[in-house]
Structures are given as C-alpha cells and as structure tokens.
Design a protein around this nucleic acid. Sequence first.
DNA 1: CGAGTGACGTTACCAAGTCACATCACCTCG
DNA 2: CGAGGTGATGTGACTTGGTAACGTCACTCG
Lengths: 178, 178
Amino acid sequence: MRAALELFTEQGYDTTTVHEIADRAGLTKTTFFRHFRDKREVLFAGQNTHTRLLADAIGAAPGPATPLKAVRAALDALTATFTDDRREIGVRLRPVIAGHTELQERAALKRARLAGAMTDALHKRDVPEPTASLAAELGVRAFYDAFDQWADPANDRTLTELTRRTLDELRAALVALD
Amino acid sequence: MRAALELFTEQGYDTTTVHEIADRAGLTKTTFFRHFRDKREVLFAGQNTHTRLLADAIGAAPGPATPLKAVRAALDALTATFTDDRREIGVRLRPVIAGHTELQERAALKRARLAGAMTDALHKRDVPEPTASLAAELGVRAFYDAFDQWADPANDRTLTELTRRTLDELRAALVALD
DNA sequence: CGAGTGACGTTACCAAGTCACATCACCTCG
DNA sequence: CGAGGTGATGTGACTTGGTAACGTCACTCG
C-alpha cells in the first residue's frame, strides 16, 4: 500500500502499472492480486475493518439508546482508531481519488457498504425501516464530512470531536428542509 | 444497449465479451468503446440525461419553493419521463447489477452524481449547506426506493406517485431518528 | 522425520481498453 | 458538378489489468 501511494503521487495513478507497484514492494504482480482484488483496492483495503468495527459498536451500544445515539457511539469507536499518520495518508489519498473516476466509484461503493453495515446492525436492534438506514446514512455522511475537515492542517480538533459536531449540525439542518 | 442486456441475461455479465456485444449490434469492439466509456457504462448510459433533467427542473421551480418542494418538483419532472418499457428494462437490469460488484460501483457513483447535480442546482437557488445536499440525497433516495417498488409487477401505481409517497414517508421518518 | 500448509514466483493466457491509420458516406461550397 | 471537409465506422497492433495452473520454499506439527 505504501509503495502504491508513493508511485501514484510520484507519477500519477494510471501511468503506474501494477507491475511497478509490486516491484517496488519487492513482490510480483501475481502476489499483488492475491492481496488486493484489483488495482484500485490497494487504496481502500483498510475500510473492511471499519465496517466490522461500526457494526460491532452499534450492537454493543446500551440497550435504550435511540438510533442516532447508537450511531454516534459507533462513530466514536471508529474515529478513536484514527491516529495522526492515518490523517496524512488521507491527505495524500484525496487528490489521487479526486482525479480518477474509477477511484471515486470504489469510494462511493465503500461508503455505501459502510452505511449498509450500520443499517443491518440497527435492524438487529429492532430499528425499523426507513429509520435505520436514514440514521446510518446520516452517520456516514457526518464521518466523511468530518474527515474532510480533519484533513485541513489548520484544524486542530480531534476527528471524534469533529464527527460529533458535524452529526449535530446535520441533525439540526434536517428541520430546515421544508 | 439492447444487445448487451440480452447477452448479459442470456449468459451472464462476465462471460460475455465486449466483442460479442458489438457483434450482436452489428458493430466493432472499437466502435463500442467510442460510444461507451467501458463495458459497465452500457448499462448506465441513460443516467446522464437524468442529471441534466433534475438540475434544470430544480432551476425552473417556482421562486418561493422550499428546498424539498423544489426537489419534489424535479422528481416529478424526472419520473414523468419513465414509460412502461423503461420499467421492464429496470426489472431485467436489477439482477445483473446485483450480482456484480463492479456494476454496483458504477450504480453507486451514478447515484452520487445525481445527488450532486441536485445539490449544485439548489446552491444556485441560494440554499445553503448542508441543507441543499441533505434535500438532494433524500430526494435521490426516494426516487431509488420508489423505482424498486415500481419494479414489482403487483404494483400498479405510477412511478411519480410512488416517488412522492416515498419522499413523504422519508421526511416523516426523520423525526424518529432521535 | 515426513506430511501438510501457506505464501510466493513463473509462465501463459484472456479480455478490457487505447491508438494510429484507413475507409466511406455525406455535406457544403465554389 | 467536383473538391475538400467532417463524422462515423472498421482494421490491426498494442498495453495492461486480471486469472489460472503449476512449481518452490519455508515453516509447523505430530
């Protein structure tokens, strides 16, 4: 993953071949594909852990918690795992993704899967539709928005703080819809 | 597009080559790629029209309309263009997409672009963030949910009716979040 | 010590996607 | 009417993502 990110920022995403990535990592093209489903996935591999983490945290939320409170607890658990080096990775990742549609696709799917995992976990808490998925989507949105703010070096808040704050703002904005 | 959908349902998505699709359409592989960015796109090509339609309709909504009212008007304009043969296409499309991650990716991106187009159009009406994007995402969600219901042959309502009703239900469910 | 297991390399292959160049129909304008 | 321009298509060669079959090597465990 490090080799890939380096090469992508050095010479661009589509001009670096998988062969080059594997070479720099001291491996073979075949081995690369044993670890990553495809070339894009090398930039998103971590996300599968996140879905599990979110789902578990929602399941472990206190019994009487409302949907949004459970989501908030899950986001707390997730954001707590984000150390500062992850922030730098995110910062370097963003322009690469922004410049390539195929990467935005993968990002969009991962985001949808994140929301899906939270939705399922909420269903297991007997939260009905469409409440469950709305809460999940709002939570995911808060997380991504907060991550964007976190990437700004002028921002010295915790990702957890930013996420909570953003979730509150989104919830408050719902009443202004109509 | 017809040739592709036929072949995909006959023999599966990943076992049909672009060469076969082009052959059945009486064309060449090269010409195929001149019309569609890649193999997936042949199933989603129509959607670019939809984004334009939605954006225009939001721009044309009556001046004092609230964000959600503008979104509702746009969805009315969009759903009005869906004739019954489009419903059949959708029905045949769904299982193909459901079975292949790469197609779900493309679908997720198109959906995000749809919401993005509506968000931009709302910004031009001086709707601030995050109200604009929340309204847009809610509208897109209503449309997709309604389309799913529309695909059920036991359902004899109009897509427009279904979409309006779904949007109302989603809006009502927002209060139960917390 | 011998069999199993897992991670990796080698090679060959297929199909997606690109590119340069040729062809052909059609349109326009002198 | 004829010459040149334009746009859509075909042809063939090429790169690269991605897969599959097979072999090797280290390590582990009974």
